[in-house]
Amino acid sequence: MAVKVTTKWLGDMRFESTNPSGHNLFIDAGEDNGGKGEGYRPKALMLSGLAGCSGLDVAALIKKMKLNVADFKIEIEANLTEEHPKHYDKVAMHFHFYGDDLNEKKLQRAVDLSVDKYCGVMEMFRQFSELDIKTHFHNTKVDFFPVQ
């Protein structure tokens, strides 16, 4: 299946990129690199793509497994090499799940399925980065006794 993206130069360091979904996004360099900071940075956009790919997998599995999750987020921190072409050589990806009744075993299974089987962006990152993936569970139920 072919995927087509068209990216048009808007002048200076700014571009507009189309997406097969019909949505557009803007790409721009920071002021320190001749841009105005009016768009996504390409390398950071790759990290958003990684989080989005895995996040979609996990969200679908949460629904399929009928898991009770109040919220979840994915935080990524990546190390950019110093030499050109600069690329991410180490990526730490942290999944955070929040809820009163988290099924940690099934949620970990959902993360593992995304990481090991479903997320194609993850597979691309494996070609050039060392990945460190962790899962965190946050019980949002507050147990306390009021002072009388």
Rank of each mutant, 00 (worst) to 15 (best):
M1E: 11
A2H: 08
A2Y: 07
V3R: 05
V3I: 14
K4G: 01
K4A: 12
V5Y: 08
V5S: 11
T6R: 04
T6D: 04
T7V: 14
K8P: 00
K8Q: 14
K8I: 14
K8C: 03
W9I: 02
L10I: 09
G11R: 03
G11W: 02
D12L: 09
D12P: 00
F15K: 06
T18W: 02
P20N: 11
H23Y: 02
N24G: 05
N24F: 03
F26H: 14
A29Q: 13
G30D: 12
G30L: 09
E31M: 10
E31C: 05
N33Y: 15
N33D: 13
G35R: 13
G35W: 12
G35C: 07
G35M: 09
G39T: 06
Y40E: 06
R41V: 04
R41E: 10
R41F: 01
R41T: 06
P42F: 08
K43E: 12
A44V: 14
M46S: 11
L47E: 00
S48Y: 15
G49L: 09
G49H: 07
L50D: 00
L50N: 00
G52W: 02
S54K: 10
L56F: 13
L56R: 12
L56S: 14
L56T: 15
L56N: 15
D57C: 11
D57E: 13
V58A: 03
A59V: 14
A60Y: 12
L61N: 05
L61Q: 06
I62D: 05
K66L: 03
V69E: 04
F72W: 04
F72H: 07
I74H: 00
E75L: 09
E75D: 15
I76T: 08
A78S: 05
N79M: 09
T81W: 08
E82Q: 13
E83K: 07
Y88C: 05
D89E: 09
K90R: 15
K90P: 00
V91A: 01
A92C: 08
A92K: 13
F95S: 04
H96T: 11
H96D: 04
D100Y: 11
D100Q: 15
N103P: 00
K105H: 03
K106C: 02
L107Y: 04
A110G: 05
A110V: 10
A110R: 11
V111N: 00
V111A: 01
L113G: 01
L113E: 02
S114M: 09
V115G: 03
V115N: 10
K117S: 06
K117F: 05
K117I: 07
C119A: 09
G120H: 04
M122W: 07
M122A: 06
F125A: 14
F125C: 12
R126Q: 13
F128M: 12
E130S: 09
L131P: 01
L131I: 10
D132I: 10
I133A: 00
T135I: 05
T135M: 02
F137I: 13
F137M: 11
F137N: 11
N139C: 09
T140I: 08
T140G: 06
T140C: 08
V142S: 11
D143M: 11
F145S: 15
V147M: 07
V147A: 08
